[in-house]
Nucleic acid binder design. Structure first.
Length: 823
RNA sequence: GCCGGGGUGGCGGAAUCGGCAGACGCAUCGGACUUAAAAUCCGAAGGGAGGAAACUCCCGUGAGGGUUCAAAUCCCUCCCCCGGCACCA
């Protein structure tokens, strides 16, 4: 039992956490719920260090919203799970020399303990663990569906390769071109890997951004990542037997300035077009380029352009002139066609390259007014120098471009493309930065990709009835030795029989990307009890799309994009009815400590445990939500904890005093303040402006307690509900002390405010003279300009400033201000 | 380099359909309570100048310019910080 005279947050929190668990307060009936509201937060990776304050910041913000919706009468479903597969977990296991199967369960246990202590409205009966075969069976099932639909394909792709560890490295594991573990220079290798064809969905992924309700910054980030650019695909005939070289360009209008071509060193035509004379040099260059890892290769800062002439020439399809073909590593195989037409007059990179190797530079666009008087646009000599390079700008025209000279650049570009199209040398094309999603990982800790290779029958999906393909326990799961995934060392695993012909076959030994696990976890939550289907049709109809999703901006382009793609693909395959997974997404801000983001590498990690034990979860929650705007983030300084702590203390004591005195009623002034507060808190919660909502609650309490006055019951009663989203434990206790039936989240209603009470009869109106505040006058609400003017002129302080001159103008904004302009 | 977010007291932050800058909180200071301190409660407070005081005036939202009766808020130029992407043709 709690002692009313002193507020003991720890005891109160213990009591109510036990109550919630015993009464299944946070477990909505998913089949009978009338107003389903799926409140999703991004599930964590269960690290060994335990729940991080950054995680809790995000969860608390999402929980606040869920509790608010619940008090508004929704049936809120708020589940949590664990993203426990992946390189993160595996690397940690390697580091502490333990097996992940051993580590994960204890990490999850620890997380659950901390999450429970934090007072979230979690439905603990429906958690998800991606490493559980009951879960990853369906992750594999999704692969199979996409495979059958032709949305999964195997192709070669370059990866970072450490020749010493003999393993593939993720980009984050390459530090300054060296392997993070052994400092060996990293090189590129081509590996055959599984890809999901997300690029089939680019237009849909882009178009839907227009109507989904997401934080605008997240939408922009995603649109930029997809990177749509309009231009043309053009073909340059070669003088050898080889076929024409295809390029993508966003500036077909500049084709008359294309004085050479550049291929990526990996371009498939390099070998065929290179002349014997140039071959030794070209081969040296190609090898050197391959020896540089992908990260280093794409660094741009003060790197001088390098390249080699192949000895071959192509024909510029516009000018008909032969132009040399070079190879250079500034052209990437991964974008466009891996070949470019170089226009040194109007592209910074081509310009630098041309200067370095002394190639011809022809300007073909210029601003209309930069054209010398009377000059013929078809033959302009601009006297090329260091400054010749010009960026694309509106209002420019084509020059030195034969019959297209003098046309506007955009118009001319279109004309050139249709002219080339008539001759079969090109067409308009839209290109995207987005690549297909490589889901292969040459690692151990993930769901095995469910594919069987049979020489006569080819690669095939594991039959659905044979799922899951269990990840075998492998003592030595180190990604070393043979260079392929550790599962390739486990004969019992990879040796199998072909599901079609029954002959000898072997399994795929790569596992899938963690982002595939997280690409569909939200679909699983409402259906965790079913083992014969990934997600129940009716449940999914009722609960999806997710009503509110709150998470970090760092997932704007990967997780959020992949899960949208999977949702669309599963819809097209008839497994889902929804087009988009998240009805609403809001990003939360970043928690900062000592000027930088909280992370292990910076050594400024904060564990919430210590604070919760000392101050209680309610105070900690309020502190986190008060330190800055939730969607922006803020500075973590534990000194600030005192504010919310004092506030909750005062709420407690005011309530207990009010109960002891038993006085009812409410003073008109305080009632007005109360309704103002309800309005503000309600609106702020809706917009996730938690810091100002808390400020409003504090403000109201200050009004109630001003000059040491004691509150009446009616004045403090609303706290029990208004405080619910922020400080759920104390809210329950207060509600109960005030005679409410438990739990407050089941039995309370969010208070309404009376708009009539927000209107005041009289207000203090600022009076400005020449725009400077000189006085305030008390006027009736809605007072006319005439009467306000009279009152303002009668004011001493105002009058003094009017002496200076003659009254010229009066600006009156009703109920806001009046400005007297004198000269 | 590109994209996005931001720059307001000693500190975290309020206020942006242009209309009283600094709500709320931390730290600080003063007072009450106490033998004393802590805790608690009440109150003060952007900076500067003048005044015994009530109060008055000036300055003030990264820098400079502009629009306006009026600018933290709108426009232009620039600087700095944070996050993401980065030779994307």
């Amino acid at each position: 039992m709690t002692d009313r005279a002193t507020f003991d947050p720890i005891a109160v929190e213990k009591k109510w956490q036990a109550f919630w668990e015993e009464n299944r307060t946070n477990e909505p009936d998913l089949d009978t719920a009338e107003r389903p509201f799926f409140n999703l937060m991004m599930y964590p990776y269960p690290s060994a260090e335990g729940l991080h304050v950054g995680n809790l910041y995000a969860f608390t913000g999402a929980d606040l919203y869920g509790r608010f919706r619940r008090l508004l009468g929704d049936d809120v479903f708020e589940p949590i799970g664990y993203d426990a597969f992946g390189i993160h977990s595996e690397n940690h296991a390697l580091k502490v020399n333990k097996h992940p199967t051993e580590l994960i369960p204890s990490n999850i246990k620890n997380f659950e303990r901390m999450l429970r202590a934090a007072g979230l409205m979690t439905d603990w009966s429906r958690t998800v663990d991606t490493t559980d075969p009951r879960y990853y069976k369906w992750t594999q099932w999704i692969f199979v569906q996409l495979f059958k639909a032709g949305l999964a394909e195997k192709k070669e792709a370059p990866v970072n390769w450490c020749p010493s560890c003999q393993t593939v490295l993720a980009n984050e594991q390459v530090i300054g071109g060296l392997c993070e573990r052994c400092d060996t220079p990293v090189e590129q290798r081509l590996l055959s890997q599984w890809f999901f064809k997300i690029t089939n969905y680019t237009e849909r992924l882009l178009e839907n951004l227009e109507w989904i309700d997401w934080s605008p910054t997240t939408k922009t980030a995603q649109a930029n990542w997809i990177g749509r650019s309009e231009g043309a695909s053009l073909r340059f005939p070669t003088d050898l037997d080889a076929e024409a070289i295809e390029v993508f360009t966003t500036r077909p209008d500049t084709i008359f300035g294309a004085t050479f071509m550049v291929l990526a060193p990996e371009h498939p035509l390099v070998d065929r077009i290179t002349t014997d004379v140039q071959r030794p040099e070209v081969e040296r260059y190609v090898e050197a380029a391959a020896a540089i890892d992908l990260v280093e290769r794409q660094k741009t800062d003060d790197k001088e352009k390098t390249g080699v002439f192949t000895g071959a020439f192509a024909e510029n399809p516009a000018t008909g002139r032969p132009i040399p073909i070079w190879i250079a590593d500034y052209v990437l195989m991964g974008y466009g066609t891996g070949a470019i037409m170089a226009v040194p007059g109007h592209d910074q990179r081509d310009f630098e390259f041309a200067r370095r190797f002394d190639l011809e530079i022809v300007p073909v666009v210029c601003a209309r007014d930069a054209l010398p008087d009377g000059a013929d646009p078809a033959a302009v000599d601009l006297g090329l120098d260091e400054q010749a390079f010009s960026e694309h700008s509106p209002g420019e025209i084509l020059i030195n471009s034969d019959r297209f000279s003098g046309m506007g650049a955009d118009e001319g570009g279109r004309a050139i493309v249709s002219w080339l199209a008539e001759r079969g040398l090109g067409e308009a094309k839209t290109n995207y930065r987005l690549h297909d999603w490589c889901i292969s990982r040459q690692r151990y800790w993930g769901p095995p990709i469910p594919v069987i290779y049979c020489d006569p029958c080819g690669p095939q999906a594991v039959p659905e009835s044979d799922l899951p393909v269990l990840l075998p326990y492998v003592e030595d799961f180190r990604p070393t030795a043979t260079g392929v995934s550790p599962l390739a060392r486990v004969e019992e695993f990879y040796k199998t029989t072909c599901p079609s012909c029954g002959g000898e076959a072997h399994r795929e030994t790569d596992v899938s990307d963690t982002f595939l696990d997280s690409g569909w976890y939200f679909l699983r939550y409402p259906s965790t009890e079913f083992d014969d289907r990934p997600f129940d049709r009716d449940r999914t109809r009722k609960w999806l799309p997710v009503a509110s999703y709150i998470g970090g901006e760092e997932h704007a382009v990967l997780h959020l994009l992949y899960s949208r793609f999977l949702t669309m693909a599963l819809k097209d395959l008839g497994h889902l009815d929804i087009e988009e997974p998240y009805q609403q997404f809001r990003k939360h801000g970043l928690l900062i400590k000592d000027g930088s983001k909280i992370s292990k590498s910076r050594g400024n990690v904060i564990l919430p445990d210590d604070y919760i034990v000392k101050f209680g979860a309610d105070t900690f929650r309020m502190y986190l939500m008060f330190l800055g705007p939730f969607q922006v983030g803020g500075d973590f300084r534990d000194r600030g904890m005192a504010g919310p702590q004092r506030f909750l203390n005062k709420v407690w004591h005011s309530t207990v005093e009010a109960i002891d005195e038993g006085r009812g009623g409410i003073e008109p002034e305080i009632e007005r303040a109360l309704h103002r507060t309800i309005k503000q808190v309600t609106e702020d919660l809706q917009d996730l402006n938690y810091n100002t909502a808390i400020a409003a609650l504090m403000d109201y309490l200050n009004v109630v307690r001003a000059d040491g006055r004691t509150a009446s019951l009616e004045e403090v009663r609303p706290f029990a509900v208004l405080l619910g989203p922020f400080a759920p434990h104390i809210a329950e206790e207060l509600w109960s002390l005030l005679g409410g039936e438990s739990s407050v989240f089941d039995h309370a209603e969010w208070p309404d405010y009376d708009p009539a009470l927000l209107i005041v009869d009289e207000l203090d109106l600022p009076v400005q003279v020449n725009g400077k505040l000189r006085s305030t006058i008390r006027v009736a609400r809605g007072a006319t300009a005439e009467s306000v003017r009279e009152a303002a002129l009668a004011d001493d302080k105002v009058a003094r400033h009017l002496d200076a001159g003659e009254l010229r103008k009066v600006i009156h904004v009703p109920d806001r201000m009046i400005n007297l302009v004198v000269s």
